[in-house]
Amino acid sequence: MPDRRRRTVLGRRASRRALREAATGYLLVLPALATFAVFVFYPLGRAIWLGLYRTSVSPNLPSTYVGPSQYASVVSSSAFLGSLWRTILFAVFTMPAGIALGIALAMLAHQRLRGIQVFRTVFSSTVATSTAVASVIFFTLLDPQIGLLSYWLGKKGGAGILSDPTFALPAVSVVSIWQNIGFTFILMSAALQAIPDTLLDAARLDGASSWHRFRSVTLPLLSPTVFFAIVVGIIGSFQAFGQIDILTQGGPNNHTMVLIYYIYQSAFVNNDYGLAAVASVVLFAILLVVTLVQFRFVERRVFYAT
């Protein structure tokens, strides 16, 4: 039947075209793929591999293969668990407060007032400040001898807030909130601008108080941005390094020893690469799981405008 032959010829031609299209597609993502392979997948694979070897105490001796047992021993060690707990505390201190503050400032700056531009610039200025600069500013402000904040908080003299086991982590958290507020502010401001004014006008006529308007109109429409800020914020707080290195180096007495700083100390101060590799892989796994969980469960409560 000529008809059927025609169809198979056509079919073959179509599949060849699909193949060619797929090849073009792969070619186009190749640069990105190569970059990821070199800088993400390969190091990740190496880290997992490295975690299977115990670094010897003496720097000249080769490391020995110990297998997955090193994962078990590191994960159950009190040093690791302690640092994980402090990381969680750090996230709890910085994230909700940071996002709430970002929304509050964005709401303030959303007002149509003369000179509001000045406030917008001030509120977003910390974006242009590096972690190092922010940390040095606060290091000075918290200095027990000359620091203004120490003076205001009645902590003048003595060892200082950053050396206080109770206040060191909260202090580092405040610096982190301050550093990130510009970014959160810009994010929330942009999201607020995207909410049509007529929606809030309609809610006013419908009789909603300003709090009711915020709760039932503004906040739900901000939810995709808030969700994004939470995901990015959790990842960010699990990776906060600079402020801790400059302000406390994990002290006093490990009270600011968060996971990432623990990894850094293990690898580059104690030269225990095996331990650091295990902790890194576990950190990666935790972030992966947390992010997946967020997309699976938290995102359900998010309203995306179509």
Binding site: T198, A202, A203, R204, L205, D206, A208, S216, F303
Partner: peptide, 20 residues
């Protein structure tokens, strides 16, 4: 006097329905 106490309702050109 606040809009909510004027007891008038408005239909907007864009309808202004709450999308969520």
């Amino acid at each position: 006097i606040d809009p909510k106490d004027r007891d008038v309702a408005m239909v907007f050109q864009s309808y202004a329905l709450y999308p969520h």
